[in-house]
């Protein structure tokens, strides 16, 4: 049996090298921003699951133009893996599903709010599709948890998703917290992969809910108080029932004329 892996060195790989990005992923964020412009107004941002750091590089180049007054600006990047330093980026090596990590990040913002939070997180893929999808969604929920504590009203949130079996449950949950939820796929992300990005615009939490970080509560516990359609663990395990699902609008980003990452060059 031969190799089944496909050569990953496409045009984006070469472009990333040319422009000094650590990974071709940089173009995913750039193409998403081309359509949604969430980086235009952003001053304080968090980049979760950031290693090796190409998104942080994009953020650093955007938020810290050479000439202007940068004193209010801040980028915090977090990953399990160590990251080599990037100008103007505070890096943290930690597990974002750990409540303590979220606490540390919040502290770094010294009481100020963030405008934009992104997560390009992908877990160790095991090959158990349902577990992989679950862990992926937990990474998103952890990022979302941080967002509820740190994002200003009207702020934006972007996270990597894999459109699998239960993605519509996640869409439904995000719908409770943001004005607009869109599933976007940049052209630099392969059409043959299930990867796409959830773009959540205009943070708008339920009025009666005060998010509270507690190092002893899991992400799931955290959202219990918030009415986002998640299963509540009452004192009795419920029977099986369908949970709310909804389909998000799909948008392809980067323009159909930009280079197609499935093409062979």
């Amino acid at each position: 049996m031969g190799k089944s892996s496909k050569d990953k060195r496409d045009l984006y790989y070469r472009k990333a090298k040319e422009q000094g990005y650590r990974a071709r992923s940089a173009f995913k964020l750039l193409q998403l921003d081309d359509d949604f412009h969430f980086l235009q107004q952003a001053v304080r941002v968090v980049d979760l699951c950031a290693a090796p750091g190409s998104w942080s590089q994009v953020l650093s180049r955007r938020l810290f133009p050479q000439s202007s007054d940068n004193s209010d600006r801040k980028i915090v990047a977090v990953d399990l893996q160590p990251m080599s330093p990037i100008d103007n980026v505070i890096t943290l090596q930690a597990d974002i599903t750990h409540p303590k990590t979220l606490q540390t990040i919040t502290e770094l913002f010294e009481g100020k709010k963030a405008d934009f939070i992104c997560s390009d997180g992908a877990p160790d893929v095991t090959g158990l599709h349902d577990l992989d999808e679950y862990v992926q969604q937990q990474l998103i929920l952890s990022a979302l948890q941080l967002s509820t504590c740190l994002l200003r009203k009207g702020g934006n949130f972007v996270a990597k998703i894999f459109r699998g079996r239960d993605i519509d449950m996640l869409y439904s949950q995000l719908g409770y917290l943001f004005e607009k939820v869109i599933c976007a796929k940049p052209r630099s992300s392969r059409g043959t992969s299930l990867e796409s990005f959830i773009v959540c615009l205009g943070y708008n939490p339920p009025a009666n809910w005060e998010p509270k970080l507690d190092v002893n509560s899991s992400v799931e516990d955290f959202f219990q108080g918030c009415d986002i359609g998640k299963l509540r663990l009452e004192d009795k395990c419920p029977n099986y029932h369908e949970e709310p699902r909804s389909i998000a609008t799909f948008i392809a980003c980067g323009g159909l004329s930009s280079f197609d990452s499935d093409a062979t060059y």
Partner: peptide, 24 residues
């Protein structure tokens, strides 16, 4: 979760303080 198998009530939930990150 400690569950009563007869009526599925959750009798109690146990965890270690400060160790609530995700497991594989």
């Amino acid at each position: 979760l400690i569950i009563d198998p007869d009526n599925f009530t959750v009798k109690s939930t146990h965890f270690v303080e400060g160790e609530r990150s995700i497991l594989y």
